[in-house]
Amino acid sequence: MFSGSQPGFEGHNCRMSTSKTQLIGLDLAGLGDVLREIGIPDKQISMRRSQLWNWMYVRGESDFANMLNLSKDLRATLSKHCSVDRPEIVTEQISRDGTRKWLLRFAPDSPGGQSVEVETVYIPESDRGTLCVSSQVGCSLTCTFCHTGTQKMVRNLTSGEILAQVLVARDCLADFPGQVADPATIAPREGKKVSNIVMMGMGEPLLNFENVKQALLIALDDDGLAFSRRRITLSTSGVVPAIYRTGEEIGVGLAISLHAVNDELRDVLVPINRKYPIAQLLKACEVYPGVSNTRRITFEYVMLDGVNDSLADARGLVEMLREIPSKINLIPFNPWPGSEYKCSSRKKIDRFASYLNKHGYVSPVRTPRGQDIMAACGQLKSASEKESKRKSLVEIDSQ
């Protein structure tokens, strides 16, 4: 069971409820601190926190009253001081292809603060169910092809808020023991409905490293959510120092949001490249722990018409990645209102993919999912941001 290196009780992990201590997202040390604080004797701490851990992450329980192997008095005490509540589901949208998008509202992070909203997306396939999880409210990186990048950075999500997205999805999909799913739900034929996690939602995960690390270590814990490292992928735009830490301290799969084969273009598409240029990024990938031909780094490459989709770009990509066991995901650009880019033609994408395949790279073309509900790659942007802008325009018009 994950114990972590930092207690989670003081401070940043308890934001889903401003009046009670939120237990979701605390490591075992932090959970023990909370139990001690509410009067649980030291000799009971280990047993009680193990019971709570099981209820939260194995059974998916969100009501202390139903935790029947805890005494009635303890359940009452926990209900008074603590919370395992889920965030509010503001909207749930279901695409024609079965993709689901939830807009989740989290409580203010301080008295007098404002609630925040993020989007989480579930992508079902025949052999897996992938949950795309957000790590920040908004984003500070301003990648020019990404809709989320047009939203201002609001704040980091806590480890509890990151994990809560997984719990909400599993609730809605009836993916915990004893739950009964809606027969109309599109999900994998066998196994867990949420079988894979990708940190590819709103925000840059490695600019929220400590909270992402704690959330993923809890998700990996064999006595809890029990995801394997091969079933979790963290995508980064290239925060190089944190890539080294990710390999050493978390060890999940790595995906690089690359999109260009030279610094001049990548400086425009992915501005963090100005701080950590391609050479530094590739060096970090070369030494990422566990990388091999059976566990490759994924390089994400969005296909932009007339920008990065020539055969010269394909040749540059092959040359660039020759020392790194790699898989290249080609992503047809998903349009969004106001974007200056267009998607490459299918002919260009196929030619690009064919060149990569001919040179030994697995390079699938990602099938756009959930476009009709703005849930596809690069399209996420919280409704709170959209509504805030709408209200601002109304106020201007009325003046």
Rank of each mutant, 00 (worst) to 15 (best):
A242L: 10
D109K: 13
R229L: 00
V118G: 09
Q151G: 13
K213L: 04
Y122G: 08
M199Y: 11
V133H: 02
P108M: 11
I186Q: 14
E117Y: 10
D127K: 14
H147N: 15
G224C: 07
D223M: 12
V239M: 06
Q151C: 14
S126N: 08
P183N: 06
L207V: 13
L225Y: 12
D182R: 10
T130V: 08
A187M: 05
V240K: 02
R128D: 06
I243E: 05
I197W: 00
M199T: 00
N196F: 10
L220F: 11
S115E: 10
G149S: 08
P241G: 04
L103Y: 07
N156T: 10
F227N: 03
E210K: 12
V166Y: 07
V194C: 01
V168C: 12
I123C: 08
T144H: 07
R128G: 05
L217D: 01
V118R: 06
S140V: 12
L173Q: 12
Q179L: 07
L225I: 07
E125L: 14
V239P: 01
P177I: 11
S195Y: 09
M200N: 07
T130F: 12
L173Y: 04
P111L: 11
E161P: 00
I123V: 15
F106E: 00
P108C: 15
E190T: 11
T148Q: 09
V194M: 06
M199K: 12
S235F: 08
A184R: 11
T130S: 14
D127Q: 09
P205H: 14
V168A: 03
S228T: 15
